[in-house]
């Protein structure tokens, strides 16, 4: 009897594993500022959202974009410019950044989506590099200096974001909101078709699905979330710079997603926190950071192909 009851309890836990994990994550993030620096947490949250956006594409559509810094970085420029030069309030600055990313996503997506595998990755990389050079040249980005001293402003006109805890709450709400939205996308009728396309594209086509359109919509959504992440980061650091549009940033988001667990819900979040923490501790060793990242990449590919969360889910036999 007892065993049956226990097994039933187990089953309920299993079925709701994602909801439980979400509550745990939210709880941790709410109490985190009591033991970690808010700026560090906000940085990690921005990267977590960026990685979730990227994972939407690689994990659920099977498309490897090697140019996601384009959306992240350009959204950050536009948000910074909007807040500083146009005097936009923070919510509109972030929306402008996200809209820019969506527009760029539609263009890049339309050009890249017909290509498969490595060709898709190469086209996204090429277009991202093109836009990187544009960022280097355009006067409003201020080249090497970037857009500095971006005002955080007042959210909805009355919440002063200069206050660190207000800022943290806003970033947390943006992150959780986008995370839930991504969860919904994955678990929508649209998401079901995406999974079918990822699993077997010719078969999905033979069932009458115009796979390219689905992939394009997914691409634009992914770019938009990446844009929200980049725009938010610009307000957090009050800075938009070339680092965020350059190709190593595209590589880093791939690494975060891989380390955390490709195609899992929570993997990108874990991966982002892991990498940001690591970089924090490793700032003293300068360029060696890249070597450490390289080693992590190799170890991941060779030993932990499922990533942190993927392996954990495997051990616990639940969905995460």
């Amino acid at each position: 009897m007892q065993r049956v009851a226990k097994a039933r309890g187990d089953l309920a836990l299993r079925r709701h594993s994602e909801a439980i994990a979400f509550l745990v994550m939210t709880g941790l993030l709410v109490v985190a500022p009591t033991f970690a620096y808010p700026v560090f947490l906000m940085k990690a949250l921005c990267f977590a959202l960026f990685a979730c956006a990227f994972n939407l594409l690689i994990g659920f559509v099977g498309l490897l974009s090697f140019g996601h810094a384009l959306f992240f970085g350009w959204a950050s420029y536009i948000a910074a410019h909007a807040a500083k030069v146009w005097g936009f309030p923070p919510e509109l600055a972030i929306l402008s950044g996200a809209a820019t990313a969506a527009g760029l996503g539609a263009i890049v997506g339309a050009l890249a989506i017909r290509r498969q595998g490595i060709y898709f990755a190469m086209i996204t990389l090429a277009l991202a590099q093109m836009m990187y050079f544009f960022a280097v040249q355009a006067p409003f980005t201020h080249g090497e200096d970037g857009i500095q001293a971006v005002p955080r402003g007042k959210l909805f006109g009355f919440i002063d974001l200069a206050d660190q805890s207000n800022m943290y709450i806003m970033v947390l709400v943006i992150f959780l909101g986008c995370f839930l939205l991504i969860y919904r996308i994955i678990n929508s009728p649209f998401g079901e078709v995406l999974k079918a396309i990822r699993e077997n594209e010719p078969r999905a086509i033979s069932l009458g699905y115009k796979s390219e359109r689905y992939k394009l919509v997914a691409f634009v959504l992914s770019a938009t979330f990446a844009g929200v992440a980049g725009a938010t980061k610009a307000l957090v650091f009050q800075l938009a710079s070339l680092t965020d549009v350059d190709w190593p940033m595209s590589g880093e988001v791939i690494l975060m997603t891989l380390v955390g667990g490709l195609g899992t819900l929570f993997g990108p979040v874990a991966g982002a926190f892991f990498m940001v923490t690591l970089e924090n501790y490793l700032t003293t060793i300068g360029q060696w950071v890249f070597v450490v990242q390289g080693v992590i990449f190799v170890v991941c590919v060779l030993l932990f192909r499922r990533g942190i969360i993927g392996e954990l889910a495997q051990v616990l036999r639940v969905k995460l």
Binding site: F190, G191, E192, A196, N200, V217
Partner: peptide
């Protein structure tokens, strides 16, 4: 040609889903 990591039910359902027209409602 099946969708390997979907369940049998989901495999069939994704085809039935076509009756809705296009499923872009994310």
């Amino acid at each position: 040609a099946v969708f390997p990591h979907l369940t049998v039910l989901e495999n069939v359902r994704v085809a039935l889903q076509r009756q809705r027209g296009s499923s872009f409602d994310f």
